[in-house]
Design a protein around this nucleic acid. Structure first.
Length: 572
RNA sequence: GGACCCGUAGCCUAGUGGAUAAGGCAACAGCCUUCUAAGCUGUGGAUCGGGGGUUCGAAUCCCUCCGGGUCCGCCA
């Protein structure tokens, strides 16, 4: 729960601790935010300390007994609660000075945790372009990376490229049959789209021609046998796909420190398979496939190696996860993958635990809800997908129109820059603001608005604040914190003061939507304030004080947007 | 059939066992000679899927039923 700045809270816990004998830590966990600001700024519920007595009477007694610190201006018992009112001037001074001093570091914890964490996200297949599902995955992966980095952790952003398997060979086969030597260069088609078109083509043709599936399986065998011509084609098509991904990642702002390729690990699982057999946690069934025994742990058994001795996805993952852990010495290993693979990851982590790897407990599946279309799941093989590049381009052109409505003589370069920033804000925020566990149903009209609870609304709020600060020019005089008396100003201050606690929560729970709603909260508060007070028209002392508030707001909002990997722009 | 997730106003969403369930969209009524109207102010709209239970107190925890989703491949 975010309540108020740390200083005031600590002083208050100390005072309550003296009056009740409870530990400060315990008291800190009990504090609540009153539902209405008229009740006060912070509430201490007396249910826990009443111990059978009437909590209303206990609250009254405590309110009289307590000696409030200087940060508190008033103590009042209301029903079973003791409510505290903050001293406005001290609240304003401590909060604003802290933000203006720490600036872009405000909100980060004092102590760095020094934990080393890998966040694996995106994980595209090299047989088809990135789609809306990847954009949700990337939004979560990047935002979580930024938040953990901000919290002092050492983050390694990783991408596992799925560049091997029957689906890859299907695209290769279609290209062999129908490609006629065309290339992305010769056709002017983006590399990943070019490859993806052949994957779709394969699935269309295979409907009427079942032998194509057998041919694709043969191609996979040739690939595994390192047939030179097959490997050459595979390398060529893979590089086309990767070139395409690189462009989309650059456009969307997804960054990676390390790329892993499934093709490097598919044949590295044997030592682990043998270890499992030796330990008796795997067995060979009558067909010769290797199965992990998981039933006694409440999970279905899992095949870890095919009867023909070739590896499947989990074989690679066993080897890759071990490699990651040993190579990077991780304290935490986060897999950002949609919740359709919940069972899979339970099985993977359980097997690693049974194999005796202590670090298995450091592995985490950050599962998020599916991205659905109004008509249901996206289906790449049928071409029923929202393409990532198309979506970005479409939203960008809508943003361009909005900009041109407002500005008649802006340079094309500037329009382009703003439009891109606004489009990314709209897309990312729409997907980050809902709880990651919830399915996201994409609705073009409603999902990507520039108004209301949206990314562009936040950017706009920031631009408004910066516009004031630009026009204010050089500061004169000193802020007088006793002048920030309106309830709007106080609410904004309290929320700005709670930013560090919010960050702590998001880093601990990965609940990025909480950061989104926090930013909406401060932006709403700021916009009301903006409407109510004409900062630049005020007299010197109050003007300086309000400018400090505006600047503090702009700092926190800018930090928040950057943590969400949403571009911050100075003007809109 | 089994496991997991979800059900909050017409739609989307927040809600960390606590006070009168909070926002956005849509609808309606206002606000631009005033720091950017991508904004602000106001009005209406909710048996928190149903029913039990635990608790001083439940949208939140437990049970059960109903509805929706995902998974339970020698796919990735």
């Amino acid at each position: 729960m975010y309540i108020l700045s740390m200083n005031a809270k600590d002083a208050l816990s100390k005072a309550i601790s003296k009056a009740t004998g409870l530990s400060e830590e315990k008291i800190n966990t009990l504090f609540e935010l009153p539902p209405k600001k008229e009740f006060g700024d912070i509430a201490f519920p007396c249910f826990a300390i009443a111990k059978g007595k009437n909590p209303t009477i206990t609250a009254k007694e405590l309110a009289e007994k307590i000696k409030p610190p200087k940060e508190i201006s008033k103590v009042k018992a209301v029903g079973p609660y003791v409510n505290f009112f903050l001293n406005d001037a001290i609240l304003a001074e401590s909060t604003l000075l802290e933000i203006l001093k720490k600036r872009e570091k405000y909100g980060a914890p004092e102590k760095k945790s020094k934990k080393k964490v890998m966040i694996e996200y995106s994980a595209p297949n090299t047989n088809k372009p990135l789609h809306l599902g990847h954009l949700r995955n990337d939004s979560i992966g990047m935002a979580l990376s930024r938040v953990l980095e901000f919290s002092g952790q050492k983050v390694i952003k990783a991408n596992l490229i799925n560049d091997r398997g029957i689906h890859i060979c299907q695209a290769m086969l279609a290209y062999k049959k129908f490609g006629k030597g065309k290339t992305p260069q010769s056709t002017g088609i983006k590399g990943d789209k070019f490859v993806g078109d052949y994957y779709v083509k394969f699935n269309q043709e295979a409907k009427n021609n079942p032998t194509l599936n057998k041919e694709a399986a043969k191609l996979l065998q040739k690939w595994e046998a390192h047939d030179p011509a097959t490997i050459e084609l595979w390398k060529k098509m893979r590089s086309w796909a990767l070139e395409g991904f690189k462009k989309t990642y650059a456009e969307f702002g997804s960054e990676f420190d390390h790329f892993f390729f499934e093709s490097d690990f598919y044949d590295k699982a044997m030592p682990l398979i043998e270890l499992g057999l030796k330990k008796g946690i795997f067995y060979k069934n009558k067909d010769g496939a290797i199965i992990a025994k998981l039933k006694e742990f409440g999970l279905p058994d899992k095949t870890v190696l095919r009867s023909d001795g070739t590896s499947i996805y989990i074989s690679n993952d066993l080897a890759l996860t071990k490699f990651k852990q040993e190579e990077f010495n991780l304290d935490r290993n986060i897999f950002v993958v949609a919740n359709e693979q919940n069972l899979y990851f339970k099985q993977l982590f359980k097997i690693l635990e049974l194999l005796g790897f202590k670090w298995a407990s450091d592995c985490e599946h950050l599962n998020y809800g599916l991205v659905l279309l109004p008509e249901g799941k996206m289906k790449s093989r049928e071409g029923k997908v929202i393409d990532a590049d198309d979506l970005i381009a479409e939203i960008k052109s809508l943003a361009e129109k909005e900009i041109k409505k407002r500005h008649s003589n802006l340079e094309e370069k500037e329009i382009n820059k703003r439009a891109k920033a606004i489009a990314l804000a709209a897309i990312k925020f729409s997907m980050l603001k809902i709880h990651h566990k919830k399915d996201f149903t994409f609705n073009a009209k409603e999902s990507l608005s520039f108004e209301g609870e949206s990314g562009p609304y936040l950017q706009y709020s920031y631009a408004r604040a910066k516009s004031i600060l630009r026009k204010a020019g050089a500061r004169k005089g000193k802020p007088d914190f006793s002048l920030l008396a309106s309830s709007r100003e106080k609410e904004l201050l309290k929320k700005l003061g709670s930013f560090p606690q919010l960050i702590k929560r998001v880093a601990e729970t990965s609940e990025l939507h909480a950061l989104c709603h926090y930013l909406l909260g401060i932006a709403e508060e700021f916009n009301s304030f903006y409407h109510e007070k004409q900062v630049l028209k005020e007299k010197e002392d109050i003007r300086e004080t309000r400018l400090a508030l505006v600047e503090a707001f702009s700092i926190v909002l800018s930090t928040g947007l950057k943590l969400l990997n949403i571009p911050v722009i100075e003007s809109m």
